[in-house]
C-alpha cells in the first residue's frame, strides 16, 4: 500500500486474497515460512518452484484444505480462521482445480457440475443445470455432459473439473499443477481454457511449470523454495533477470524444455 498514492483508486480496492506472515508446520517440519502475498481482484499469479518447495501447501491454505499455525489469511474480506462457517464461506468463493482432476466417478459430467451448487449454494436443479451447461459450453465439452468421468480423456476431465469449480461462481480460482498429470497432447486444451478464463478477468493463482502460460497470462510470477517466497516479478523481468541464485538454477533446469 506504500507507493499506491499515485493511484488512489487502486489503493481503495481491497485485495482478493491476502496472506500475512503465514507459517505452516507439518509436525516438526516447517512447510511455509513467513508467506506474504497479496492478490488483487483480477490478478493472475503463477507460482513455481522445485518439488517440495511448498507451492501446494500455500494454495491449499487459501481454501483451508490445510490449516496454518501463524499469520493470517483474508479472502475477499473474510478472515480465514478455524471457524467451520467461515471456512465454508471462503470455499464457496474460491474454486480449486487439482492435478489429478478429482472428478466424482459415480456422477455424470453434468451431475459433477451441479452437485455443489445445489447442495452447498442451495440452487434449484434447473438453475444449476443451466449454469452447468453454460460453463461446460465455455470449456467446450457440453457434448459430453451425460458421460461419466471414466469415459473421458484426461484433458477432457480437467476441463470438466474447471467447469465444476466455475459452477460455484467463485471470485478466485486456484490451480495446482493442472496439466502435470496430462499426456502432452492434452496440455494445450487445458491451458487454452485457463487462458480464456484469465482473459475474462478471473483472479487466479496457478501452480504450474508451463512457462509459456506464465509469460502469456501472469501479472506476476512467484518463485518458492524451501517453503518461502524467494522472488517475484512480472514475467518479462522474472525470466530475463532472475535475481536469486536459486531462481536462476531452477529456470536453468526447466526452461530448456520450452
Amino acid at each position: 500500500m506504500s507507493t499506491s498514492a499515485s493511484s488512489p483508486a487502486a489503493a481503495a480496492i481491497a485485495p482478493m486474497i491476502a496472506m500475512e506472515g503465514v507459517e505452516k508446520w507439518y509436525g516438526t517440519f516447517k512447510a511455509l515460512t513467513d508467506i506474504n502475498l497479496t492478490v488483487r481482484p483480477g490478478e493472475k499469479i503463477v507460482l513455481c518452484g522445485p518439488s517440495g518447495s511448498g507451492k501446494s501447501t500455500l494454495i491449499r491454505c487459501i481454501n483451508h484444505l490445510e490449516t496454518y499455525e501463524k499469520g493470517r489469511i483474508v479472502v475477499d474480506g473474510v478472515l480465514l480462521d478455524n471457524n467451520p462457517k467461515t471456512i465454508d464461506v471462503v470455499r464457496r468463493e474460491v474454486g480449486m482445480v487439482f492435478q489429478q482432476f478429482n472428478l466424482f466417478p459415480h456422477l455424470t459430467v453434468l451431475q459433477n457440475c451441479t452437485l455443489a451448487p445445489m447442495r452447498s449454494r442451495g440452487l434449484a436443479r434447473d438453475a444449476a443445470e443451466a449454469t452447468a451447461r453454460r460453463l461446460l459450453g465455455r470449456v467446450k465439452i457440453l457434448d459430453q455432459a451425460d458421460k461419466y468421468p471414466a469415459q473421458l480423456s484426461g484433458g477432457q476431465q480437467q476441463r470438466v473439473a474447471i467447469a465444476r469449480a466455475l459452477c460455484m461462481e467463485p471470485k478466485a480460482m486456484l490451480f495446482d499443477e493442472p496439466t502435470s498429470a496430462l499426456d502432452p497432447e492434452m496440455v494445450k486444451e487445458v491451458l487454452d481454457t485457463m487462458i480464456g478464463l484469465a482473459k475474462d478477468g478471473m483472479t487466479m493463482i496457478c501452480v504450474t511449470h508451463e512457462m509459456g502460460f506464465a509469460r502469456q497470462v501472469a501479472d506476476r510470477v512467484i518463485f518458492m523454495s524451501e517453503g518461502a517466497i524467494v522472488e517475484e516479478g512480472p514475467p518479462a523481468e522474472f525470466f530475463q533477470n532472475p535475481r536469486h541464485q536459486r531462481t536462476k538454477k531452477f529456470l536453468g533446469e526447466i526452461l530448456p524444455r520450452y
Binding site: M96, Q100, N102, A116, S120
Partner: peptide
C-alpha cells in the same frame, strides 16, 4: 476412497456429512 475425492468435495464448500 482417494483423499482427493474428499478434498474436491470440501473445496466445493460441501460439509463433511455431505
Amino acid at each position: 476412497i482417494n483423499k482427493g475425492q474428499l478434498e474436491a468435495g470440501r473445496a466445493l464448500g460441501l460439509r463433511k456429512g455431505q
